[in-house]
Nucleic acid binder design. Sequence first.
DNA 1: TGCGATTGATAAAACCTTTTAACAGCACGA
DNA 2: TCGTGCTGTTAAAAGGTTTTATCAATCGCA
Lengths: 338, 338
Amino acid sequence: MKNTGERRRTIYDVAKAAGVSISTASNALNGTGRTNAETRERVRRVAEEIGFRPNALARGLLSKRSHAIGMLTNDTYGRLTLPMAAGVSEVLVDHGVSVFLCATNNDPRLAQLHLEALLDRQVDGIIFTATRLDLEPPVQLSRLPIPVVYVFAEGPADSVTFFPDDEQGARLAVDHLKELGRSRILHITGPRDYLAARIRAQSYLDACGDGAEAMFGEWSEEWGHEAVQTVFARPGPKPDAIFCGSDEIARGAIDALRDLDVEIPTDVAVVGFDNWEVVARQTRPPLTTIDMELKELGHRAGLAILSLSKGEPVPVGITRLPCRLVVRQSCGSPLQSD
Amino acid sequence: MKNTGERRRTIYDVAKAAGVSISTASNALNGTGRTNAETRERVRRVAEEIGFRPNALARGLLSKRSHAIGMLTNDTYGRLTLPMAAGVSEVLVDHGVSVFLCATNNDPRLAQLHLEALLDRQVDGIIFTATRLDLEPPVQLSRLPIPVVYVFAEGPADSVTFFPDDEQGARLAVDHLKELGRSRILHITGPRDYLAARIRAQSYLDACGDGAEAMFGEWSEEWGHEAVQTVFARPGPKPDAIFCGSDEIARGAIDALRDLDVEIPTDVAVVGFDNWEVVARQTRPPLTTIDMELKELGHRAGLAILSLSKGEPVPVGITRLPCRLVVRQSCGSPLQSD
DNA sequence: TGCGATTGATAAAACCTTTTAACAGCACGA
DNA sequence: TCGTGCTGTTAAAAGGTTTTATCAATCGCA
């Protein structure tokens, strides 16, 4: 019923319209082989006129490079994945590479299905991204005929992996607080079985030394709230700053502090982690926090898979990308601005 | 350096190993043409053994159906898009269809670039999804040789479009409040130039009639907070329930009510909209709200584009999918549970 | 035995592009 | 005049699959 007769233009149409052979047309369009400048111009003009666009399937079939990659993610909610995927897509579209998005929902069957579909489509590479869980990939990725890049997830020892630099990010937070004269800094963070939580906590402990305390719990507001209540209920000196492992935790902590009539930032300064704008901008006062530069992470992962797919060498192992301090008002430093 | 010799198996390998021609192999595998049952079995067994998987590029080139679709979105943050995309992908993977994700960032140049890439890849269809903005698509989609399905965005008059049923969703919220005996219901929602906000507000006004008041503002916590302060500062009777246009607004409203020492849900019941779990679960008390069934929306859009790409008829015009009431504790009805 | 019908298999074309090898034409030097 | 080298163009092959048309063999039946 639809497109009857409105067939897509092929290079054959170009050749005929320009009065040359298809090989000449191809050479002229791609600048390959030997072509007379005048012929080349004519072919290109004709191609433009009739709106010729090469069929990516045919091209990929021949060149064995589909100029497409797959992105396998187990993040249903998308708060980490989508900004990253946008970064990947953004950097690759300029190189003519498109991105298949495959959400696995942590279901190994689904992951396997997606993986096979990607391989059938001859993708040039795969980016595997998990949420911050220390999870094994839901599917065997190690002996694939195409390169794999891991983001937020650890691959085999010799794989190419990107993470945010949690250690540096945590130090950024602590240093900021110290520079503002805070000395009794508390750390409230997520579950101990998250690698990211452990790294951030260790970095914090290294920086604060004596009297430092890291409280592990959940990645939730509730936990932030509860932890603050606990600390302020017990006897002894109170912290003058709190470094939270996530913006949600920070939000819970801020709410609890307000309930306790503790002034922010006068009495206690608070720093979060994630720069999840919808949370960080809405706390009162707005939250100073650490941005993991998800888009940049996507850029780097995209470029890495691009290089790998061309056979170019890429530094192997874990690359940690620096985090960025975003100053808002929860630490009370109108001087220190970004 | 990599895959030297480990070439992918082709149907030619299958044919040779089974001692038949490639046409017979193809027929046997696909159940087309006439094939001896015994031969068919043998071919299939051999294909399985050597791990043959057909090259989707070659297949698509010939059949003119790539079994891939594109998803064009301008949602940077992903809170609407990713759950939907997961729904699309989930329903399509079982039909052997993969999804290209293209984030346009509302940049027309980028949108055009993505669109051309999709067409070059011979995608079977496109799903265009905007956030709830009443925006024109950033790119001309109307005279395409492939079908387009719109979600959260209005296409031309005769296009296939899916929306959540904002009118029914709002009625669900209001009815719930009324059933609980609330009579002075206030509505706080987003900007008036959002179609969704207008529809929900109208539905609310229709249901509440006399004395009903819809306050338009921003999609932010801050606005929810401010609106409540305004209402409770002015003289006259106070509402005993608030229906908010988003969970974020509801959260701001709840915070403001707490500051005013108004008991929730005893004095005022609150209903949100979105069921954005990370917000709705974290309010105190947890928020009763309206779920837009994003995943189901994705399912339906996926199935629609699938049918269209096969040339099957699909009801044209706007289809509105029912929303669902999610009861938590902000309305105080342990009896009424879902 | 001879003929038409049926079965099972195959060669070849098609999809669209890129690349390799070959070819024709021409200028040049010997 | 004859080879040599260069230029611009083209025919053909390749990539992996599906489909159409053809072919050989077998069978039933007169």
